[in-house]
């Protein structure tokens, strides 16, 4: 990507966007890990209902989809992190505060889903 005009020499917005990206990737990876069937023979019983897992994972990953859409829109609207508005300063924070709260809530929900699944099994 090449952009006109000056950019932050420390590449702070890019670093922050990359931090978001790897957080989202880890989130989806953990969700997929939970979606996977146990390593043991499923006929042995004990596993959590796959439909429960699918529904729960879809719910939390939907929240992450909202975050991805928000990050993409905001990144484009700020000229790839170059300037947030007429002042010409980079966007800070890269995502809106509600996105941070949403990510926290989705992560907490995933943790609770995993714990609840162990109780249900």
């Amino acid at each position: 990507m090449s952009h006109p005009g000056p950019r932050d020499s420390g590449l702070q917005p890019e670093r922050t966007l990359l931090a978001w990206q790897r957080t989202v990737i880890v989130f989806v990876a953990v969700a997929l890990l939970y979606l996977r069937d146990p390593f043991e023979d499923p006929a042995a019983g004990g596993g959590v209902d796959p439909l429960y897992r699918l529904a729960a994972v879809l719910a939390v990953v939907a929240a992450v989809g909202v975050l991805i859409a928000h990050l993409r829109r905001r990144w484009r609207a700020t000229a790839h992190g170059l300037h947030d508005d007429a002042t010409g300063n980079p966007p800070a924070p890269v995502a809106r505060p509600w996105a941070l709260v949403l990510l926290s809530a989705a992560t907490a929900a995933l943790a609770l889903v995993v714990a609840a699944g162990a109780v249900l099994a």
Binding site: F27, V30, L33, V114, A118
Partner: peptide, 15 residues
């Protein structure tokens, strides 16, 4: 937190 959840998934569900 996600790494801790991954550990919980392994212990409670996967392994």
């Amino acid at each position: 937190a996600l790494a801790l959840i991954a550990g919980a998934v392994a212990v409670l569900h996967l392994v």
